[in-house]
Design a binder for these strands. Structure first.
Lengths: 248, 248
DNA sequence: ACAAAAGTGTTTTGTCTACACCCATGC
DNA sequence: GCATGGGTGTAGACAAAACACTTTTGT
């Protein structure tokens, strides 16, 4: 993963690549990346969107994205972009799909590899605090109009997230390291847009043996404090080898 | 889907793009496609590989692949390549992953979008009958050494197939339109590399209501002829809307 | 008759669901 | 003491696994 975040000029290259007429020399001009960054706050599923503060594209919302440099893989370019945007690395980041319709960007041929990323509440602030551009968490039910095919990209990302979250324990990447069972349940309810039965959800989760019960408890709540759990990645990978099937 | 299969020169462009030093003008020079074409024969899972008959790459096996033209999407480029290779269109064809390591192809920067395809026994002959190049079905357990990162690509495709086949009824694309329940079972056994219980498998399948029982029976077998079934796509899409979950 | 696969039935075991219930804590 | 969520128990419906069994057909 390349990591030369010389912000001043790099940021210029990251956002709204489509609108920058003079491209840098070190990028592949037909290839970009775009990321759907999911976050979960107050039981709402949100997506990170960016908007140019000024210029002819002012006011238009888009997914954060950037160019692919000659000296990096496409995956790395997406990770670099995310690192510059959120300040966080080692984020859950996976390829979603290549969007390559000939006319997806007017007057240009730009093929984009779309990614989806999951980030924890602890890291939300960093993302939202970007200065030069308008960067904002937007509720998934309340998306503005977006440039190009970015709405399609979000759509597919959401479908993929919904599907994947039911078959693999990736949801944990949307929670802080330690969480209560109810938080986990509410996360699933937010993503899948369903109501789940509390006792049954608890049992199902606990029976999988994927949760390490820390000895800590919730603090600052006006009711009985819940136990905090952590996701046990090691056990998961073991079980995975044995053909274990995570199902929610 | 573009369909100008002027074989003579087009075939030249399709195979072994990596070895062609002079690229055509109408393609994006950094972008290719590669497809893992799965077929199932005699209860064996196979992959379609190609080999140059002559030249300095003679004897080296590779996935069938080609360049992406300026006037087509990447998906279309893969479909076109497959159509030229197998003579069949409307094949099951899905994006797998973008492979973009900087050094995946020596001395060049080529980013490939990998696909996986499923084709029916009825169409195997066409594929294998290609003239100019060596095109061959190879058992998945008996793969030769492959150029570049093509082994990785097959690996990922196999993983994806195994995963997907358990959660979505895509396996039917590897069988002819009409099939017996045992053929279906053997298909699953070949893909997943497991033994399944016949009575239970039958019941599970039939209970899903995804099979139309034609009134025809198997012919030319030296035992009681089995009923032939067809996959009912219409019913599947209905059930899918209602949140139906195909699980094997 | 026998082989080979088609197809059915049954018992056991476990898992999912729905819902009733008690527990701990802050206000 | 009551609201709020934490956490447990349980009966009934339902589905999975294992395996014994009968039926049909070609040789």
């Amino acid at each position: 993963m390349t990591e030369n975040a010389d912000s001043a000029t790099s940021d210029e290259k990251i956002f709204f690549y489509g609108r920058i007429q003079e491209l840098p020399d070190d990028v592949i001009h037909t290839l970009s990346n775009d990321s759907v960054v999911f976050g979960c706050d107050n039981c709402c599923l949100k997506v990170l969107l960016v908007r140019h503060a000024a210029g002819d594209s002012a006011g238009e919302w888009a997914l954060p994205g950037g160019w692919v440099r000659f000296d990096e893989s496409v995956d790395d370019s997406a990770a670099r972009m995310l690192q510059q945007l959120t300040g966080v690395h080692d984020i859950f980041l996976e390829q979603l799909h290549v969007f390559s319709n000939v006319h997806r960007v007017p007057h240009r041929r730009i093929i984009t590899t779309a990614y989806y990323a999951l980030i924890r509440p602890d890291d939300h602030a960093i993302a939202a605090g970007h200065s030069t551009y308008d960067v904002r968490w937007v509720d998934i039910h309340d998306l503005p109009e977006l440039i190009y095919d970015h709405a399609d990209i979000i759509n597919m990302a959401l479908q993929r997230l919904r599907h994947k979250v039911r078959h693999e324990p990736i949801g944990f990447n949307l929670l802080n390291k330690k969480f209560t069972l109810l938080q986990l349940q509410e996360l699933y309810e937010a993503i899948l847009d369903v109501k789940l039965d509390k006792p049954n959800f608890r049992r199902k989760m606990l029976k999988m043996n994927l949760l390490i019960s820390s000895n800590e408890k919730q603090t600052g709540v006006s009711h009985r404090a819940a136990k905090l759990y952590e996701f046990d990645e090691a056990v998961y990978h073991e079980l995975e080898q044995q053909g274990f099937n995570f199902e929610i």
